[in-house]
Amino acid sequence: MRNDENPSPAPVRFDTKIAVLLREDLETWQRLNVTAFLVSGLGSAVPEVVGEPYADADGTAYLPMFRQPVMVMEGTKENLTATHSRALSRVLTTAVFTSDLFTTGNDRDNRDAVRAVGRDGLDLVGIAVYGPRNAVDKALKGARMHP
């Protein structure tokens, strides 16, 4: 069979973007933990970001995952504050992780810790945003790709 009879499928380009911005001074374990927590609610809040379940060649079933990449970025405390403001002004789906959450041990206490501080006073160590690609890119202005 000639190559031109079976062309490669075109690359998939998504109109939306999932991005996580982490504060640059976090320890490695904190970066991983914060990223996992930040994206954990996205699938229930925006079900269309989740693809179909997986299965291997033996038929073993696996959970579905996001249907698109998650961009992981890093920045300064000021980058996080600015991204938070821009994400909210663009009405992007947003999750936050504050420094206080490193001292709690459960979901109830996590929510109480965030609820105890006003929006502009949150000590953000991570933020996840989802929405139209261009709006997410604008919200993340000044951040850089995680190394």
Rank of each mutant, 00 (worst) to 15 (best):
D25Y: 02
R67S: 13
D120S: 14
D112Y: 06
M145N: 09
E52Y: 09
L122I: 02
V20Y: 01
T103W: 03
A82V: 14
T83P: 10
L38H: 01
R31M: 15
T35G: 13
G131L: 06
G41S: 10
E27Y: 11
T103Y: 05
E48K: 06
N134F: 05
G51F: 10
Y130V: 04
R31E: 15
D15Q: 11
P132C: 01
V117E: 05
M73G: 03
A139G: 08
R67C: 10
T76Q: 07
M1Q: 05
E78A: 15
T60D: 07
R108W: 09
M1H: 06
T76R: 06
K17Y: 01
K138I: 03
G105T: 08
R23I: 04
V91H: 13
T60N: 07
H84L: 07
D120A: 15
V117G: 05
E48T: 13
P11S: 06
V70K: 02
L21G: 00
N33D: 12
L140M: 15
L22E: 00
P11C: 02
D123S: 13
G105I: 03
R115P: 11
M1V: 08
I127Y: 00
A113K: 02
T83C: 14
P132L: 07
K17I: 04
L88M: 12
D25L: 08
V34R: 01
L92P: 10
K77R: 11
E27P: 00
E5T: 03
G75H: 08
E27V: 04
I18G: 00
N3A: 12
N33G: 13
A19C: 09
D58Q: 09
D100S: 12
N134E: 15
D120K: 13
T35C: 10
E74H: 10
D107I: 08
S99P: 01
L92K: 02
V129C: 09
N79T: 10
R86M: 06
A55H: 10
L21M: 09
A61T: 06
D4R: 07
A135N: 05
N134S: 12
A82D: 12
V46T: 12
V50T: 12
A128S: 15
R144E: 13
L101I: 14
R2T: 08
V70C: 03
D15N: 12
T103M: 09
G75A: 11
D25R: 05
D123W: 00
V50A: 03
A128V: 03
R133K: 15
A87C: 07
N3E: 13
N6I: 05
A116W: 05
N79V: 04
L21T: 00
E48P: 01
R86G: 03
D100H: 10
A19Q: 01
D58Y: 08
P64F: 09
V46D: 04
N110E: 12
G121C: 05
D137I: 11
G59R: 12
P7C: 07
L101N: 00
L101S: 02
D107R: 04
Y54D: 04
S8N: 08
T60A: 12
T94D: 02
G131I: 02
G41T: 08
